[in-house]
Computed example of a mutant assay.
Amino acid sequence: MRDHPLATDAVLALGALVSMVVGSFASPHGAHGPTFGTRTPATFSLFLMVLGAAALVFRRRRPRVVLAVTIGLSLLELTSGEPRAPVAMCAVIALYTLASRTDRPTTWRVGVLTMAGLTGVAMLSGPLPWYAQENIGIFAWTGMAAAAGDAVRSRRAFIDAIRERAERAERTRDEEARRRVAEERLRIARDLHDVVAHHIALVNVQAGVAAHVMDKRPDQAKEALAHVRDASRSALNELRATVGLLRQSGDPEAPTEPAPGLAVLDDLVDTFRNAGLPVKVMVQLGRSAADTAPLPAAVDLAAYRVIQ
């Protein structure tokens, strides 16, 4: 129906025409209610019904024009002096279409004018008294058409607003996810830089020692090379642990070792002591319990990286 709106409106117009023609054969003044087959519509009324149904085919393309045309056809039928035929149903459908596709003030202005115009002409023309049920029916149908169209328009606007908020929330969530990914990548890059810089500095020192004493003190050179091996192994282990954070859910399980902190400061200092550098560590503890309490993980890691 969305892909072929003109065909949909043509089917609706055909259904409206059939309903109007069938209704024109019914007489509402039977002894026990409406009766069929007691009257036949005039040719002029049938012609107006066909024109009104044809106008409904274009109700969504030109709603104002179609409403004006159907109101004119309804007024012609009401003032023709022929037995009443439900041509006004075309105006009812056209009024609903206009109400569902415009704003509320326009809906009620046009709706009140249509109700007053058609009902007033129906009451003042024809042999029936002004309070006849056909006249009241025109008033009721046009009022319900305006109200139903306004309700449909409000619901569509409400659904569109919800959809827009959902799309905006989705975009915001995606942007937040990308921002968090970028921050995590930056943090991992910093950790990688700290790890690599520390261990490459150790390897450089140990390699310099080994090159300096290779000829005169081969035993010390061998020890320095062993420290180079240990430092490179530690660098690989820390790189593996850091890069393990990037594993996906289906990848092998990441290492479960805790992040480095001041608790392993002695191991960090020993790597330099093994290179032959004199390193002294002085720890000054505070007097209050708050000063000796464990540091937050982020502060602990930052202090370790600074010393490293």
Results as ranks from 00 to 15, higher is better:
A210M: 12
H193Y: 10
L246F: 05
M1K: 01
R61H: 02
A13I: 02
T97W: 04
A302M: 10
R109T: 12
E134Q: 14
L295Y: 12
L12K: 02
M144V: 13
R39F: 05
A54L: 13
G117V: 07
K216R: 14
S80D: 08
R84Y: 15
T114N: 00
I200K: 04
V299C: 06
I162P: 01
E223L: 13
D291L: 07
G120S: 09
A235Y: 09
L265A: 04
T142G: 01
R217A: 14
R101Q: 12
T8N: 11
A55N: 00
R233H: 06
D150Q: 07
C90M: 11
G72N: 07
P278M: 02
P252F: 07
L186I: 05
A53R: 01
R217L: 10
S232F: 11
H193V: 11
V92E: 00
R39L: 07
H212L: 15
R155G: 14
V203N: 08
N237I: 15
G149C: 00
W130A: 12
F36G: 10
G33F: 09
A13M: 03
N237F: 15
V21A: 07
G143W: 01
P218D: 11
P258F: 08
G143K: 06
L95V: 01
T119P: 03
R60F: 07
A297L: 13
G149M: 04
A157F: 00
A224R: 04
V66F: 03
D251F: 08
F44E: 15
A55H: 03
R156F: 01
S249L: 13
A259S: 08
S288E: 10
V205G: 14
G117E: 02
T40N: 12
A235D: 14
R273H: 04
R155E: 12
R178L: 10
G52C: 05
S74W: 13
R305A: 09
I200W: 14
D230P: 01
R61M: 08
E175W: 00
P127T: 13
T79A: 09
N204M: 05
M89C: 06
L202Y: 04
A303R: 13
E257S: 12
T38N: 10
L118D: 00
L73F: 02
D9V: 00
D266K: 04
I93C: 03
M214L: 14
G15K: 07
A303P: 03
E176S: 01
V11P: 06
G149W: 02
L192Q: 08
A54K: 13
H212C: 14
L17C: 10
T106A: 09
G81M: 07
